[in-house]
């Protein structure tokens, strides 16, 4: 059902988006690998990808977002989102579509609704609400800031929080604030499009989510050093 609704939303959006064009507003695309990094942990070091891509016009776009974590050649976590994005305010886009969690098993589908944009004081914000089957509701807030040491050496603190309305033991998610991630990455933009970085990432699971993790013998909190690249085209 969720899947159908999401597809219907995107299909509807498609018809609007292709109508808008003009020589000032060409069809463009952008692929952004925000993070492709190795994180140092006690065990095998996971490889993490956080990327998105869009295609479209000034005010109407299709977005694809993904987060993947691979440890020891095994995909531990994988999430994809297909969204229609419409500019609704000078600095804000409304996004709606389908979120699909491939890993951990079992797979989960959500209707995704969110706002992405630039908040006052130049915080980049991506806030999403996810309505799943069986009434599960999730929310995610991601905020990032850029501090320029120089024109090319940029420090970016980032926070991500996930909330869920219900326990979902199969995928290890508990109700309330389930997890939080604080990152601090220092990148050097060799070009605007390409920057290696180093950083530190702190993750913590809370409440029932933490209990589920403990039951699985996982850490509930970890500080990781990261090294990676950021690239777009």
């Amino acid at each position: 059902m969720i899947k159908k609704t999401a597809i219907a939303v995107t299909a509807l959006a498609l018809s609007t988006a292709v109508m808008a064009s003009g020589e000032d507003d060409p069809l463009l695309y952008k692929v952004m690998i925000d993070k492709l990094e190795v994180r140092s942990t006690d065990g095998p070091d996971p490889l993490v990808l956080d990327a998105d891509a869009w295609i479209g016009y000034d005010l109407n776009k299709f977005w694809f977002k993904t987060e993947v974590e691979v440890t020891d050649g095994r995909i531990e976590e994988a999430e994809v989102q297909f969204l229609y994005s419409r500019a609704i305010a000078p600095f804000w886009d409304f996004q709606a579509g389908w979120r699909h969690d491939i890993r951990p098993k079992p797979e989960r589908d959500y209707l995704a609704l969110g706002f992405k944009g630039l908040a006052p004081y130049l915080f980049e914000v991506d806030a999403g609400l996810f309505i799943g089957e069986s009434g599960q509701v999730g929310a995610r807030l991601d905020a990032e800031y850029e501090y320029l040491f120089t024109q090319k050496l940029i420090l970016s603190p980032e926070i991500e929080m996930n909330f869920y309305s219900k326990d979902d033991e199969e995928v290890g998610v508990g109700s309330g604030l389930s997890d939080m991630e604080l990152g601090l990455r220092l990148r050097y933009e060799i070009q605007r499009e390409f920057a290696p970085y180093i950083g530190v990432n702190w993750t913590k699971k809370f409440g029932q989510t933490a209990d589920f993790a403990r039951d699985e013998g996982e850490d509930t909190s970890d500080v990781q050093f990261v090294i990676g690249i950021r690239a777009w085209f």
Partner: peptide, 20 residues
């Protein structure tokens, strides 16, 4: 140039204010 400006409007601005 036009595409870059659409994707990142400050692409060519290397005089933003910094730490210094």
């Amino acid at each position: 140039v036009y595409r870059k400006l659409k994707k990142l409007s400050h692409y060519y601005n290397f005089n933003e204010r910094t730490q210094a």
